[in-house]
């Protein structure tokens, strides 16, 4: 993947700095960034995080650990994390009113499975809209499960075992053709889209970048491992039923069987994963480290609220 196109002054400066290999540009983010959820800030943050995944072919890989870029990342992350906390405060509070059991709280938070986006894709979407949906989802699904994998070395005991078991399935059960990210690439190809990693970053909406950056924020900070696992649980717990609708929508539109296969795999897989993520991962983790309880709820609420905003953006565009 090559560097994306800029979306404002900050991302333009960052892209120039990365391309030229001179990250010590003093003007970067000087004087605060304002709203952390804008296209410009979110793209800059996404680029900085991507250095820790596959990176960019036109960027010197040693810049992953450039102190100037890490400082910039921190400058963007701090207000972004505060913004997420504000946005999810009501949802988190609602969960805490459901008793003390983290599994019951997660079940309460994810009880509404009615998702307007899934309903639309099931019954009404055009093939073009379905492809728009795949394009937005490609930002995550081409690195499916990678943001949660950062938590593995930061957990121990039953929670670690359960996360490894869940991820073994995400990562293909020993068969590279079954890697979930590979199944998604196949689905993109089947839909006539570009399956290459990062192909659609320029088309990713700000809410899509927000949802992805939140996963990286939680994953890359050991401090936030509870939020990373709460996010994973909420993601898995709200997947099976929508995936069934995505399957039916793809069948209704006569889309390629590779599109159907991707979502079909997730109906069954995520019915397993949601149990592992809620009980075996989050339940065990909170038992071992009770201080992480609130962060699990933060991560779960962030997943639900931010994925909801990304879906709403698509529905707005189609209106």
């Amino acid at each position: 993947m090559r560097l994306p196109r800029p979306r404002g002054d900050l991302s333009a400066q960052l892209i120039d700095a990365l391309a030229s290999g001179t990250p010590e540009t003093p003007a970067l983010a000087a004087g605060g960034i304002g709203d952390p959820s804008t296209d410009d800030v979110q793209l800059a943050l996404w680029i900085l995080y991507e250095q820790h995944y596959r990176g960019f072919e036109d960027v010197d890989p040693s810049l992953e650990w450039s102190p100037d870029l890490l400082r910039l990342r921190r400058t963007l992350e701090t207000p972004f994390e505060a913004w997420i906390c504000d946005l999810t405060a009501t949802t988190v509070k609602e969960a805490t009113e459901e008793g003390d059991d983290v599994v019951a709280q997660l079940e309460h938070l994810t009880r509404d499975q009615s998702g307007a986006l899934a309903r639309h894709l099931h019954r009404e979407a055009t093939a073009e809209q379905y492809r728009d949906f795949l394009v937005q989802r490609s930002i995550y699904h081409l690195k499916e499960s990678d943001p949660h994998a950062w938590a593995l070395p930061r957990l121990d005991g039953p929670a670690k075992v359960a996360l490894a078991e869940l991820q073994y399935d995400e990562y293909g059960d020993g068969v590279s053709a079954r890697l979930h990210s590979r199944l998604f690439a196949d689905a993109l190809e089947g839909a006539g889209l570009d399956p290459s990693y990062g192909a659609y970053v320029d088309r990713a909406s700000a809410p899509t970048l927000v949802a992805n950056n939140a996963m990286s924020l939680f994953g890359l900070h050991r401090r936030l491992r509870g939020a990373a696992m709460g996010h994973l649980a909420a993601f898995e717990m709200t997947s099976s039923l929508p995936c069934r609708r995505y399957v039916q929508g793809a069948e209704r539109l006569g889309l390629d069987e590779r599109v159907v296969r991707y979502f079909d795999e997730h109906v069954e897989a995520d019915a397993v994963h949601e149990q592992l993520a809620a009980r075996a991962i989050c339940g065990s983790m909170v038992e071992a480290e009770p201080d992480l309880h609130d962060d699990v709820l933060l991560g779960a609420a962030a997943c639900l609220v931010l994925e909801g905003l990304a879906g709403d953006r698509l529905l707005e565009e189609w209106r």
Partner: peptide, 16 residues
Amino acid sequence: RKPWCDGTHKLAQGPE
């Protein structure tokens, strides 16, 4: 999709 679970039990328990 028996014998596998597809999450439908949640519809019997919660709002949809």
